[in-house]
Write a protein that binds this DNA or RNA. Structure first.
Length: 811
RNA sequence: GCGGAUGUGGUGAAAUUGGUAUACACGCUAGACUUAGGAUCUAGUGCCUACGGUGUGGAGGUUCGAGUCCUCUCAUCCGCACCA
């Protein structure tokens, strides 16, 4: 009988299902491993990226399970989100129906790949039970001030009547209807991630060597800490008068306090209160231009050339008392450092460009060449009163000290990281559990009333928020005073759900009704020993999940600082050198591959073709090759293993080929620990197993075949579980899959070894020699073997590297 | 511009961390068997002017010895991008 993957695979999948083989034990005295892959969005079908992700995590999970660990390897679905609403608009399908149908289909696909997920812990984040606990955390966060409401500028589509995220803009237009997006002030809910910025940055050092350095660098960059001076400019008396005595000063932040004497003007963002006030009063002749500037998104502004408008307002330099003109400029960010900057054109490239364009004065305060542009290097200060001659690095500290002494400014740390806006004007998300009361204001729901669930009877048109338009859903009672009130119609960003799912999986599903995050369960299972997912989540998801962990820790739910101990970011799956995508028509459907070759072939190919961190180029004929190997493995297991009973092999009595075969088998075994526990280079382990099978093929001993197959099937079980279980069951009653196999050192001892002989570092010839030969014997033999290169030459040096080579240096 | 990687046969990739470069696989070539097939098996396969020479993007350096360490350089990919 030949290899029939579909029969074998469905047989074992059913056995595993029936036995609940992948449910972790409740016994907390066992050593545990928590292996987690990023959960999928239920888009409808699995793609190869998913298969790769889960093939990796499954191999690691199965490896540890086989080593006797209590393994948690869960899966779920990141089930809220816009695509469900888009499907509703396009196909008139209810998002809930669409989502659950997709989950059902994808669960079947996951099963057909033989992944060893815990079924009892499978979750969908759109489940009201999940929402319930999430809403509770959000209310707790509100109580401690981590969640707050704020009026900020957002991207607003005037046609679809909704807020859009930055990544939903295409050239400043709505990605769906093409309408020009405008900036609009809106109330929204924010999570104070900036409060945790320092800790999020500091703790990156805990992850060094355990997370890819690239991810650490990206997060570091994203948080963007900078230390400088914060101080305020007073306005001149006339200017204050112009502003109706309402504004008398404004704050700026600088990292270059050393250049403060070089300030020749100040630049304000178009959103700055001074600019707004002037606009309101109609004092600006360039009002139209400034307003259109304010309507541009940050991204658009960054692409536009530098532009500015003189405001006719003057500030007073805090040290020199000189008058400094104020400008409104498009390159000043409203959301950073107070939306105002002191401009030092002599020592800042942007200020130089701006000053040159508008012919503003340039005042040099650090020695250096400013003939062709700003000088941003270091040097001694000039034109800086008492600081003249001081090195600029030193001056920076001294000037900050001076400001603090005079109480006109202070050292300040700023972050590029912005607070996390979690409001979405969407239907298919977790409702933000708050109520608007005329008397009490914004009030959190009573915990007993959770979860606040979505109404099913909604019309989803893509315009506006269906919750807002629902006739009755909004109506509620104020949790505080009991009067009629209005429910919040914003729902939460889907990144909120994926920020705490790693804790939810750890909770015993028997208690899912009673508790959101069980302290003891989390204490046992967390941190995640190995997290696996795509690099595309390097910042957002991984930063949010780290942030949530710290917040939940401070709220007393968990006791760890970092959720993911180790992170593996897998490379993309490519076809014809490009990322697989429907629009390019270069996709490979996992279902088709399973149908044609079986899940084991798909898994083997994916892990063999490339190390997991690298990109994987899909190659149809290489898939055939993987299939061929499995057929061969099946054939040899059924035809060569004639005496399945394992007996102690007397190694010394074996022939050379038999010894070599054993050696190859044990080499593979030796390699496996490093592969599964640290390097994850499954490709090399598979190659070693192939080498072992090749070596076994060159000998005929039944006992060597038996032992070899026993070990190879053991090693490959995490990668090709179905075939491995089937054959192991038939040949060894599955005994080779239940324990760790010890390495026999004897097989590595050789009667003779091959040593290379080099002349002046160049490899010339090999020799066979006893491994116990003395240095003298080795050299003697080598000299005679290599005699033709040594004739008439003078020996300068003789180097012997034991077991490896001899190098003769001659002249 | 800043930050992070990566460069090895026709292709995907190995190399026990300074010690015989190209394991394993794909592809290709030739052959065997054959119910003529995209099956299986055997042999070969870095390049060149082939008893020799040369070869890990390029140029130097350290060393008895470098894919591996150091310096410079080129190319590609990814992330961030007016953060004052």
């Amino acid at each position: 009988m030949s290899y029939n993957p579909s029969q074998i695979e469905s047989k074992w999948q059913d056995i595993w299902d029936k036995n609940g083989s992948f449910e972790p034990s409740d016994d907390k005295s066992l050593s545990k491993k928590y292996i987690l892959s990023m959960f999928p969005f239920p888009s409808g079908r699995l793609h190869m990226g998913h298969v790769r992700n889960y093939a990796i995590s499954d191999s690691i999970a199965r490896y540890y399970r086989k080593q006797g660990f209590n393994v948690l390897h869960p899966i779920g679905f990141d089930a809220f989100g816009m695509p469900a609403e888009n499907a509703a608009i396009k196909h008139n399908l209810h998002p809930k129906k669409w989502t659950y149908e997709n989950i059902e289909y994808m669960s079947k696909e996951l099963k057909s790949l033989g992944f060893s997920f815990s079924k009892n812990r499978e979750l969908a984040t759109c489940d009201p039970l999940y929402t319930k606990w999430e809403q509770e955390f959000i209310i707790k966060m509100y109580e401690v001030g981590v969640l707050f409401r704020e009026l900020t500028t957002v991207n607003w589509c005037p046609h679809d009547l909704t807020v859009l995220a930055n990544e939903q803009l295409e050239d400043g237009c709505c990605w769906r209807c093409g309408t020009q997006v405008v900036q609009r002030q809106m109330q929204g809910y924010y999570l104070d991630i900036v409060k945790y910025a320092d800790e999020l940055l500091e703790d990156l050092s805990l992850l060094e060597g355990k997370w890819p350095s690239q991810v650490l660098a990206m997060q570091n960059n994203w948080i963007g800490k900078s230390i400088g001076l914060n101080f305020s400019f007073s306005l001149s008396d006339e200017s204050i008068k112009q502003l109706d005595d309402e504004i008398k000063s404004f704050d700026v932040f600088t990292t270059r306090a050393d250049t403060i004497y070089g300030v020749t003007y100040c630049a304000l963002a178009p959103e700055h209160p001074i600019v707004k006030k002037l606009l309101k009063k109609g004092l600006l002749k360039d009002a139209k231009e400034i307003e259109s500037m304010a309507n541009m998104t940050e991204r658009e502004r960054s692409q536009a050339p530098k532009e500015g408008y003189k405001l006719g307002i003057e500030a007073i330099h805090p040290l020199t008392g000189e008058k400094v003109p104020l400008w409104c400029a498009n390159f000043v960010l409203a959301s950073y450092g107070g939306g105002a900057v002191m401009s030092v054109p002599a020592h800042d490239e942007r200020d130089w460009e701006f000053a040159t364009k508008y012919q503003l004065p340039i005042k040099q305060v650090i020695e250096g060449d400013i003939s062709n542009g700003a000088y941003i290097g270091s040097g001694k200060l000039i034109n800086s009163d008492e600081f003249n001659g001081v090195d600029n690095v030193e001056a920076k500290a001294k000037i900050i000290a001076l400001f603090e002494e005079k109480s006109i400014g202070s050292a300040k740390t700023n972050f590029k990281l912005r607070n996390w806006g979690v409001s979405r004007q969407r239907y298919w998300g977790a409702p933000i559990p708050f109520v608007h009361c005329d008397d009490c204001g914004v009030v959190p729901e009573k915990i007993d009333n959770l979860p606040i669930t979505l109404p099913d009877d909604v019309q989803i048109t893509g315009e506006g928020n269906p919750l807002e338009k629902h006739p009755t859903w909004k109506e509620c009672k104020c949790p505080k005073c009991g009067k009629d009130a209005i429910r919040e119609t914003d729902t939460m960003d889907t990144f909120v759900q994926s920020s705490w799912y790693q804790f939810r999986y750890a909770v015993n599903p028997k208690n899912w009704e009673n508790v959101g995050i069980d302290k003891e369960d989390v204490k046992y299972w967390l941190g995640v020993d190995q997290y696996i997912g795509g690099i595309e989540h390097a910042i957002l998801h991984l930063l949010y999940a780290r942030f949530f962990t710290k917040v939940l820790r401070d709220l007393g739910y968990v006791q760890i600082d970092e959720p993911f101990e180790r992170l593996l970011t897998q490379g993309m799956v490519l076809k014809d050198g490009a990322k697989m995508s429907k629009s390019k028509g270069n996709t490979v459907d996992p279902d088709e591959i399973i149908k044609k070759y079986g899940a084991d072939t798909a898994r083997l190919f994916i892990l063999f073709a490339s190390p997991p961190q690298k990109e994987l180029e899909w190659n149809d004929s290489a898939v055939e090759g993987s299939f061929r190997f499995l057929k061969r493995l099946y054939d040899r297991a059924t035809s060569k293993v004639t005496q399945p009973r394992l007996e102690k092999i007397e190694h010394s009595k074996l022939s050379k080929d038999e010894k070599y075969a054993r050696q190859k088998v044990y080499e593979a075994l030796k390699k496996s620990t490093d592969v599964f526990e640290s390097s994850f280079s499954f490709n090399t382990l598979i190659a070693s197993c192939m080498e072992a099978l090749n070596a076994l093929d060159k000998q005929e001993s039944g006992e060597v075949w038996s032992e070899g197959m026993y070990i190879i099937l053991h090693l490959l079980e995490p990668i090709i579980p179905h075939l491995s279980h089937e054959l192991s069951d038939r040949l060894f009653a599955g005994k080779n899959l239940t324990h760790k196999i010890e390495i026999i050192e004897e097989v590595f001892i050789k009667e003779s070894i091959t040593m290379a002989i080099s002349i002046n570092g160049k490899h010339r010839i090999n020799m066979e020699i006893s491994p116990t030969a003395s240095k003298e014997v080795i050299l003697e033999t080598a000299r005679s073997v290599a005699s033709r290169w040594l004739e008439n030459m003078t020996m300068v040096k003789e180097i012997v590297v034991p077991n490896k080579l001899v190098n003769f240096v001659i002249r």
